[in-house]
Design a protein around this nucleic acid. Structure first.
Lengths: 186, 186
DNA sequence: GCCGCTAGGCTAACGTTCTTAGCCCAGCGC
DNA sequence: GCGCTGGGCTAAGAACGTTAGCCTAGCGGC
């Protein structure tokens, strides 16, 4: 164990992320992160401003990771295929890391970094020739659907043993069909 | 101030609910509830088993309230009207009490009490002649959509100034159309 | 090679919160 | 009037977040 642990803000956030994965958002404490880092709790204050700051940073990383996944998933596809790929990537991320779902509905995830994700969604929707306000409304429909499904699934919010993949497939069909045919337009 | 405060578990939970409304789920602490009740913190343990128990009870009450609202909203209507009424009631509840959204994705809200809400959703879907597995999948689609929209709205997750009512209206049209026309069925 | 600065660790200490243990009395039933 | 019990209390301890202040490893300049 070196006298200097060589921590950085980034490493602290990464450890925070793994604590969230292990123990849930409620389990994210400076004490646990410090233990994982092999460091005394107050030492973390050299890298982050406190627990709220850590939570915010972790939320930003999660949103950025999710955005990257989604962005990669829609490269080279368009139209219904792109929407399906986007939805699948979003859901897969939360299936893989269910404890991170709670971080996606919080102020930091809701504002600036969220704009990158929105940009990806809007890009996908250009395949439907949607622009301006139309595209914003459509983006909200799309994100609501996939976020709702993935959040409820991550929280274990679906009882019954019916196949979740099948439910999600139907959601995707309904959303793609609705967006493609312009359902809901004035 | 009477020597006996005359607390009950129900009153403790109600105070917990108002603390959540004022200060968010993170702000829910036994200390605050005790203060609101005019009582010392340990006294609460005569009525609830601790903070996790209080959170669970509050979550159950919220889900029950939401279910009641939704149930009332769909009385006497059917088909698309019923689905729209259900979605509107769900969203309105979270617009009125945004801090309660976080309680709807948690184990207690996800299991038994959630079945009552599911039952209402399934009843509404009978207007589409959906039964058995078909109805379960459709219920998931419906709940995902409305829950996702309402959660993101409650968290302030929608930037841009486009009219949220209009976005929600389009979501409703897409969902009702999709369910009515059987989109997504094999 | 030495000197000093600073980044990054530490300990000490405090306030808040949850929780348990145990006391004590108000008020009801007999 | 007497005793039981439910529902309050205080005391105390553990965990956590946070602040203050110290101390030194290790680098850059001379």
């Amino acid at each position: 164990m070196p006298r200097r642990a060589g921590l950085t803000a980034q490493k602290v956030v990464e450890l925070g992320l793994s604590v969230v994965d292990d123990a849930g958002l409620d389990g994210l404490s400076l004490a646990r992160v410090a233990e994982a880092a092999g460091v005394a709790t107050p030492s973390l204050y050299k890298h982050v401003a406190g627990l709220p700051d850590l939570r915010e940073r972790v939320a930003r990383v999660v949103l950025a990771e999710l955005t990257d996944r989604v962005r990669e998933a829609v490269i080279g596809v368009s139209g219904d295929d792109a929407v399906r790929a986007l939805m699948h990537a979003y859901r897969s991320y939360l299936v893989e890391f269910p404890n991170r779902a709670a971080l996606l509905v919080s102020p930091p995830a809701a504002t600036e970094p969220g704009e990158d994700l929105l940009a990806v969604v809007l890009a996908v929707l250009r395949g439907y020739r949607l622009e301006g306000s139309e595209a914003i409304h459509a983006a909200r429909v799309l994100r609501s659907s996939v976020h709702g499904f993935a959040s409820l699934e991550a929280a274990g919010g679906f009882g019954y043993r019916e196949d979740l993949d099948e439910s999600f497939r139907r959601l995707a069909v309904i959303v793609t069909t609705g967006l493609r045919t312009g359902a809901g337009l004035p």
